[in-house]
Design a protein around this nucleic acid. Sequence first.
DNA 1: GGAAAGTTTGGAACCGCTTCCACCTGTCAT
DNA 2: ATGACAGGTGGAAGCGGTTCCAAACTTTCC
Lengths: 354, 354
Amino acid sequence: MKKFTIDDVAALAHVSRSVVSRVLNNHPNVSDAARERVQKVIREHNYRPSSVARSLASDRTYELCVMAPRRSNEVLSSGYWALTLLGISAGSLQRGYFASVSLVSPDMKEQIVDRITRHAFDGYIMIAHDVATIVADALQDSPKPLVLIGHDPEFPKLPSIDIDNWNGGYLAGRHLAQLGYTSIGVMLGPKAAKETNDRKAGFETALREAGLHIRREHQAYCHYSWETGYIVMQEWIASGHCPRAIFCTSDVKATGALRALYEAGLRVPEDVAVVGFDDLPASAYAVPPLTTVHQPIYEKGVRAAHILIDLVEGKPVPESHLSLPPHLVVRQTCGGAPGEAHPGATPAQDQTNA
Amino acid sequence: MKKFTIDDVAALAHVSRSVVSRVLNNHPNVSDAARERVQKVIREHNYRPSSVARSLASDRTYELCVMAPRRSNEVLSSGYWALTLLGISAGSLQRGYFASVSLVSPDMKEQIVDRITRHAFDGYIMIAHDVATIVADALQDSPKPLVLIGHDPEFPKLPSIDIDNWNGGYLAGRHLAQLGYTSIGVMLGPKAAKETNDRKAGFETALREAGLHIRREHQAYCHYSWETGYIVMQEWIASGHCPRAIFCTSDVKATGALRALYEAGLRVPEDVAVVGFDDLPASAYAVPPLTTVHQPIYEKGVRAAHILIDLVEGKPVPESHLSLPPHLVVRQTCGGAPGEAHPGATPAQDQTNA
DNA sequence: GGAAAGTTTGGAACCGCTTCCACCTGTCAT
DNA sequence: ATGACAGGTGGAAGCGGTTCCAAACTTTCC
């Protein structure tokens, strides 16, 4: 069956294909009569212009490429990733673009780079910096714009969006200090990451303000995964001098720690208090529901999409490094004032409403 | 800056563009000398053919469209979705295709359908049937193949891949019955879904074989979400005759139930035993670690991709409704023989190794 | 009434690739 | 020698749109 093309529409509407094209693209200079005839034909035959042909001619694809790390399945299945993508996708759709994901891993580099550089996208979003290092060389002389989710000092010129990690750490530290905990441990992220150091610095500042400090052995650097949280916690418990409260720089690690505490027969928060970071949708349903630092994951995605599209369309982008504020969500893993309600009893719903 | 095109390559290699095209597509009839010259130029100038132009000329895009429900964020952030996508993406990549996701929701129907029908994809994969109902009319006369993840009697002619849900339910029922539980409740999925009924039938068969049955009030139909699991469990607890063991047809609901039990001061499994369904990566880190029916989510994705690509390439597809076997993963929410190790101590890793 | 300006139109080039076809070699059997 | 046939090559016609340009048709205004 022959495809129904713009020429068919033109013929049936008794106009030239130029007119049809103008109708398709909302150009002003089309007479009402012609416009109506064309629209009627389009409607009746359910005609859709080929995006491929259109892209070739106009050098615009309206496709955005989001590159996410393929990494361990924790990152993906924790919900962080899905929520980010959901945000990007929603933001793109609002502006008439589509976001499509490429899972990037070092071993697939060839294929990914190949695809990415084939002029099929109007712009790129990278979730997490390690993606950046993988594809950086392939993209560095790309004429297409690129935005990063998460600041990365290695790529100072790339527009990026992140949260105020220092403040996030500070909120966690102040909460623990205010509740009177003094023996405090911290499970950080990868040592090299900027966000790790920011969260750590904010956290330590809060403790210092309360006259506290963290013992060397209560400080661990580890990946974002359930397993590492679980293992580190087990080690602390086994060591005999387990901290009374811990700050995990991700909910996933906190969840792993929760399991280790449960298996060791320790109660949360009576024996050990826990505060996480991220406020993943699942964290409201942890046992006990997790007190954590909320970051607007979904919104980061939406904003990243808008920034990128502004760049694509040549609009001025005010700030090149945008920072969103985190906030503390108090649930049940830190105890707190007796009689205090559990503000986290209902999971945060804000993220899907946008 | 002018783009570097096939004609530039041709000129530099002193051949016609036909020859370059043949080299690009591994056509046999090219002399070794010419092939080498072309490849050299390609390498030196880092030339990449435009996928857009190529698609227009060949009517093949090597892009697969995967449609996932936009729905509530639970589905997305539970990991089920991400794992499926990961599988599809891996399966596609193996065959030289790319999978890109469209989040489908009724309110976005216009835009989604518009995009989907613009001849930009070689084929489609639908995750979950409700997606199918949204876009079904738009896609029904599409010449491109389509595969479904999850059987759906409404679309009998569509190739699909699923697990043996009946058997999954049976495994859960038998486990509970063997452990000696007699007062058993069940949280099912949406009433209309085929998988709900299959799991229910298998579960009930196992109970019947043990001479057991489920009381009317211990049977609830609800969405896949933490919240509904939480609420239903709370209601059962409040009713005064809470079942001694429950089967939740998704881990997400089971996790919600776990929180309700925790908050009511009930111990798992001592007071109430819980068995889930899915074996999401997070479930190994639930408190307590969740006993559940494992389904090969990642593999379903891989297989779906392969089936679709076979269809795209005109290869014969042996079975049109493929079923994969589930299996039981015993962890700590059901109790069990004393002294029995916890097989779930380490989370299932198989899914990412493929 | 006619020039100037604005609106609407169709023709044609072009985007970068694939693919059909005709043509030109050289090899081999007759 | 002559023909048949294979491998290798370049020319040219698409694929389905956008966009520039000039022509034709209106309207406005002196």
